[in-house]
Design a protein around this nucleic acid. Structure first.
Length: 876
RNA sequence: GGGGGGGUAGCCCAAUUGGCAGAGGCAAGGGACUUAAAAUCCCUCAAGUGCGGGUUCGAGUCCCGCCCUCCCUACCA
């Protein structure tokens, strides 16, 4: 077998691993479990098994976790490295609706396809732990966790304005709606009040925020979660409405600016609007509210820079001004720049200290009172803006400005002269004394809309009595199986499709009372909120997981996935985990200790002169760096973009495996750059890593057609070449160090360096060198390494062989080659013994560059041990 | 507007965290082997690190001010 026949090698070893369950990690209580070994839990974000299959972006993250898992096994860890399927959700259902195929059928087919693709890449998953969120054995426990949430008062029903997507026939969570359109499918959405299940994630806002601190997560993800939670400290202030018994409350981060409040603004949805609007204003207000309700959020926010709004005819009373003071009466406006969903849906407007209020005041000719004095008034607008002086204009006959920066209070009675922090404190104390305000912390985070009017999701374990009573399905009656419906399309009425399952719908309890099942289903996020826990004990029929297993394996030590899950999945899972922690069901307060976002694998796309996208398969490179459209012959521009169907630039692993093999694709995925970096998939670079594998192969196997299966010298026990031995120690040291940092690209470079040295030295490795290098290579090119290992005469997999060691003494050279700098520029080099003293080094250096120092005075000699000598000289 | 990355040979990327700008790969050029080609092997080539200042004996790395680019977010009171 002279040639490196990767197709044959890879399929053989994949079968071997499968048959021998090589990567099954026994847990506590299981046969073969060794509690003396430390554990390590390496997790990939489990995929949604789409119909499209894998593209080459998937293996990037999967390769990183796989290399790490294999490395850690060899270092004596019990490694939990599972895989499963996030298989409920909209795409399967959409596809089913279009084609008439049942989602259970397409999901099963997709899982088969994904499984074979992942196996073809040789990932060392523990397939005995495979699970799918759509398995009844799995989702019965998802339902069970819901009952825990319900019992703790964290799941409730509410009539709330929710995003309704007509095209999808379901409500969506805020996070699933982007600019008024559905994230999936990009369909228009409108707000509509509906009875829905909500999860009280807001009760955990503070802990979700505070506990981010100790997580080893990318700063960007932490920042996104912090922003999403949106903690904001300030105060609440109650306002009387003149001539009404009504009051309303506003939230403000700047209670210290109350003296500058000259009007109030209510959100169009605010319930007070109806009550206080005067008869003269009623028509205008109603028209405005109607208009606002028709606008998408995008139109109301991002696109609308002008501040629209109408007067209600009512006045609010500013408590800091005495009766009779005209400043006490603040007109109440309705304006859509105030959102019902944040704070209290009402604000006090301080045009002197808030840009939006300032713009509104200017537009509607309302008074502007200055309440914070800027430290200076720079003439340069850019300078002014920098200190917070964001607007300056002539208004109502005098100069007016809006200052949002740091300054002292003015025109504010008892606050005058105070800096912001003291002023806020003083005002809140004053408000509390008057009983019309208090300190308050608000969060942008809202409760999680947890129900969907769709078929392909977990049924709720909830029963509704005719009298309106709501109760949980008894734990002993779980699971509530998803009924096998033929017609699973959304209904035009908005009723969930499960309402059609007439046999399933009604339940009669022991007392003869008739109940109707909840017909909403859970959102896709439900299943992914706890799958990492089920992996600890996936076959457990009596419990979601055993305490023993959870205790041993959790938390997840290393979690890898895309940045797109920075808030949704990762926040929801943290929330559930904390609830389970409070229930005493898990032993850690956070599920994922270390998180890494793998970079995106992009792809080249091409654009012609008019900017139209040209499919990749229609482009040819006629000369270095110049690309042409084969159809029109026109030159096209190459750009780097996300892989997508529309750009026709998706690369699938299948074709690459066929041409170069799985080991090559793994190597290349890891070699492209840091795991976290995005880079384009460049087919031109594949042969490079493939050649490395071939060179490796040749170090073991003679090329001749009829040659022996192994170089004869590899069967002898002999010492290897000294230089090769040093290179090997260097490679082991570098690879080990890099793997600990997940710096796969540089680890591969180190192995390439070794192979280059070995090849240059004639390609004769000692048996021991060959064995150690094989082990070193095995986390990356696992199939090839297994093959070489068996050629060396081993009968077992190398997956659990001890990781090769290196001797630090082998890494240092006896003689150092040091540069000698004069004023920081390299002028000569010297050779000194490694042990040479500072004085010796200095002396040698001076002797070497002596003649260059003519007429110069050496003012300082810098000797950096082992690195360089720098002479600082000046004209004497 | 705000937040988080990133700009180093033609390209993808390294650089012991202040110490010789180069580990590795691609591409390019030359040579060896070959009747020839492929494959393989050997050799060569290149940037002074986005721009402008500063600190330092010494800056890709630290500080200040800009430019470009990718991702996220955006009237949040």
């Amino acid at each position: 077998m002279p040639r490196y026949d990767f197709t044959d090698i890879e399929s053989r070893w994949q079968h071997y691993w499968d048959e021998n369950r090589t990567f099954h990690a026994p847990g506590p209580g299981e046969e073969g479990f060794d509690p003396k070994q430390p554990k390590f839990y390496v997790l990939d974000m489990f995929p949604y098994p789409s119909g499209a299959g894998l593209h080459v972006g998937h293996p990037k993250g999967y390769t990183a976790t796989d290399v790490l898992s294999r490395f850690l096994r060899m270092r004596g860890y019990n490694v939990l490295h599972p895989i499963g399927w996030d298989s409920f959700g909209l795409p399967a259902e959409q596809y089913a609706i279009q084609t008439g195929t049942h989602p259970a059928e397409t999901t099963a087919a997709n899982i088969v396809n994904f499984t074979s693709q992942l196996k073809a890449l040789g990932f060392s998953y523990d397939w005995q732990r495979e699970l799918a969120t759509t398995d009844v054995d799995y989702y019965r426990w998802t339902q069970w966790i819901f009952t825990k949430l319900y019992e703790r008062g964290l799941a409730y029903q509410a009539e709330v304005p929710v995003w309704w997507c007509e095209a999808l026939g379901t409500v969506l969570a805020n996070e699933e709606v982007i600019d008024g359109r559905s994230e999936r499918g990009d369909h228009p959405c409108v707000r509509r009040p509906l009875r829905q299940w909500m999860l009280k994630i807001t009760a955990y806002a503070e802990r979700l925020l505070a506990d981010l601190e100790d997580l080893d997560w990318p700063e960007s993800v932490k920042a996104m979660q912090r922003e999403w939670i949106g903690r904001s400290e300030g105060g609440e202030i109650d306002f009387q409405v003149e001539g009404h018994s009504q009051t309303f409350t506003v939230f403000t981060t700047r209670p210290d600016t109350l003296f500058g409040a000259t009007f109030c603004t209510l959100s169009p949805e605010h319930p007070l609007v109806e009550k206080v609007t005067g008869s003269e204003q009623r028509a205008a207000v109603e028209a405005y509210r109607l208009e606002a309700s028709r606008k998408s959020d995008l139109e109301r926010t991002a696109l609308a820079k002008d501040k629209s709004g109408v007067f209600t005819g009512a006045f609010a009373l500013n408590p800091v001004y005495p009766e009779g003071d005209p400043r006490r009466r603040m007109p109440i406006y309705v304006a859509d720049y105030v959102l019902m969903s944040y704070g209290t849906g009402a604000i006090m407007a301080v045009p002197g200290g808030d840009e939006r209020d300032f713009d509104f005041a200017v537009e509607h000719d309302l008074p502007i009172v200055q309440i914070v004095e800027p430290p200076s008034f720079p003439k340069d607008p850019a300078e002014a803006e920098k200190i917070g002086l964001v607007r300056q204009t002539e208004h109502q006959g005098q100069a007016a400005y809006c200052f949002t920066g740091v300054g002292r209070a003015i025109h504010s009675d008892f606050l005058n002269g105070l800096a912001k922090a003291e002023a806020v404190k003083a005002m809140i104390e004053w408000l509390q004394a008057q009983d019309c305000g208090r300190p308050r912390v608000t969060y942008r985070l809202r409760d999680w809309l947890f129900s969907r009017q769709r078929y392909w999701g977990e049924p709720f374990p909830v029963l509704h009595g005719e009298d309106g009573e709501v109760k949980l399905v008894d734990e002993s009656d779980l699971p509530v199986s998803l009924p096998a419906l033929d017609d699973f399309k959304p209904t035009s009425s908005g009723d969930p499709p499960l309402a059609r399952a007439t046999d399933w719908l009604e339940v009669v309890d022991a007392d003869g009372k008739v109940w109707k099942r909840e017909t909403n289903s859970m959102p896709q996020w439900a299943g992914s909120c706890w799958y990492y826990l089920r992996f600890c004990d996936p076959k457990n029929q009596d419990q979601a997981w055993s305490q023993k297993a959870e205790n041993y394996w959790m938390p997840v030590d290393f979690y890898v996935g895309g940045a797109e899950h920075a808030v949704l999945h990762l926040l929801y899972a943290r929330f559930w985990h904390k609830v389970l922690f409070d229930c005493g069901l898990v032993s850690t307060s956070e599920p994922f200790q270390k998180l890494v976002n793998q970079g995106m694998v992009q792809s080249f796309a091409f654009k012609d002169r008019r900017g139209a996208l040209i499919p990749v398969d229609r482009v040819e490179e006629r000369e270095e760096g110049h690309y042409f459209d084969q159809e029109s012959g026109e030159p096209v521009e190459r750009l780097i973009a996300k892989m997508s169907k529309s750009l026709r630039n998706v690369v699938t692993p299948d074709s690459v495996i066929q041409e170069f093999g799985a080991d090559t694709i793994r190597l290349y995925s890891a070699f492209m750059g840091p795991v976290t970096a995005s880079a384009p998939w460049n087919p031109r670079d594949l042969p490079g890593v493939h050649r490395f594998l071939q060179r490796t192969w040749r170090l073991f196997v003679p090329e001749e057609e009829d040659g022996p299966p192994l170089h004869p010298w590899l069967l002898e026990q002999k010492d290897g070449d000294e230089e090769v031995e040093r290179a090997l120690h260097k490679a082991i040291a570098k690879t080990t160090e890099d793997l600990e940092q997940l710096a796969l690209n540089t680890a591969i470079a180190a192995m390439m360096e070794f192979v280059n040295v070995a090849t240059r030295k004639g390609g004769r490795l000692s048996r021991s060198q060959a064995e150690r290098f094989t082990l070193l290579l095995s986390p990356f090119a696992s199939h090839l390494a297994e093959e070489l290992w068996s050629k060396l005469g081993h009968n077992d997999t190398l997956a659990y062989e001890p990781w090769p060691e290196f001797d630090p003494a082998m890494l240092v050279e006896d003689t150092l080659d040091l540069p000698v700098q004069i004023n920081g520029k390299v002028r000569a080099r010297i050779q000194v013994p490694r042990q040479a003293s500072r004085e010796q080094v200095e002396e040698t250096a001076m002797a070497e560059v002596g003649e260059r120092l003519e007429g110069l005075q050496v003012r300082k000699v810098v000797v950096v041990p082992g690195r360089l000598v720098n002479l600082v000289v000046a004209k004497s």
